[in-house]
Simulated assay, not measured.
Amino acid sequence: MQKSSVASVEAPNANETNEETTRKGRGDRRELILDVASEVFLKEGYAAASMSEIAARLGGSKGTLYNYFKSKEELFGAYVLRNCEMHRSQVGELLKVDGDARTVLTAYARRYLEIFTSEKTLQNWRVISAESAKSPEIGRAFYESGPLQGVKLLAGFLDKAVGRGELKIGDTVQAAHQLISLIHGRMIKARLLNYIPVPSAEEIEVEVQSAIFVFLSAYGV
């Protein structure tokens, strides 16, 4: 009787499995390092933070930490980029939803204000902004990976809304910048300066409806 070859075909290659496990392990460890580094940067600020403290909190040696990041500058850069990716996914996903412009933009504006008026987000902004004054490349990387990518995502949605005949916009990138400025309004400046506490859902809704009303008054068909 001929033996079945199914088992030999489906059995994973041991070397490939080990490589995948190793990559996953390194990825998990890298994320853990960034979690701990974020806590240290937020508490101490970039200048006062040290690789020694981060390694101590991780329960390992500086040598192990340097296997993943060659310097504190590189680690801080990875922290900046991860924050950009996280915020972009949290807000940008709403622009991929099918729906009319008013509904999608209202949900987008609401999520935007909820995230960017939160204390943790503002702490990240303060730390990154402070370091950008001394290291312009940090600020450039942050702006290009965060706010600028956010504008491009929003402009992409506006392009589709224009194509559907819902909006009339000549320059969607400029319009995206304008909408984000309307959403920012007074709240984010006041929050950055600790002038107001974290806004309530009702307060956010008032700002959102006002911003969307002005934007659609200008660009709505």
Rank of each mutant, 00 (worst) to 15 (best):
Q2K: 15
T121N: 04
L113A: 05
A48W: 11
F76W: 06
G163A: 07
Y68N: 12
R126S: 10
L95G: 06
V151P: 02
S5P: 11
S5V: 14
L32S: 13
G27C: 14
R191L: 07
I169V: 06
E131D: 04
E137T: 00
E44M: 13
V104W: 04
A161Q: 05
V6S: 06
T22C: 13
Y195N: 09
L179W: 02
A48E: 14
S210D: 06
E166S: 02
E166W: 08
E203Q: 01
P197A: 00
T106M: 04
Y112N: 08
T172K: 01
L113V: 03
E31W: 12
A49T: 05
T22G: 11
D98L: 09
A48P: 05
K62L: 00
S210W: 09
A14Q: 15
E19L: 11
R23W: 07
S5I: 14
N124S: 02
T17Y: 07
A55V: 13
A48F: 13
I54H: 09
L167C: 03
H87T: 15
A11P: 07
G60S: 03
A211H: 01
Y66M: 00
L94C: 00
I188D: 12
A141N: 05
Q209K: 07
Y108W: 10
K120V: 15
V36S: 06
L34Q: 03
A14N: 13
L32D: 09
V127E: 04
Y68T: 00
F213T: 13
K3D: 14
R186H: 08
E144K: 09
A107H: 03
I54C: 05
G63L: 13
L32T: 15
I196A: 03
N67W: 11
L153K: 02
K160N: 07
A141F: 01
Y66I: 11
I138E: 00
E85P: 01
A14C: 12
L81H: 00
A49L: 12
R140Q: 12
L34V: 00
I169C: 04
A56W: 08
A161C: 11
N13Y: 06
F69N: 06
H184E: 04
S217H: 09
A78I: 02
K43W: 02
L34E: 09
S217N: 12
F41G: 00
S118R: 05
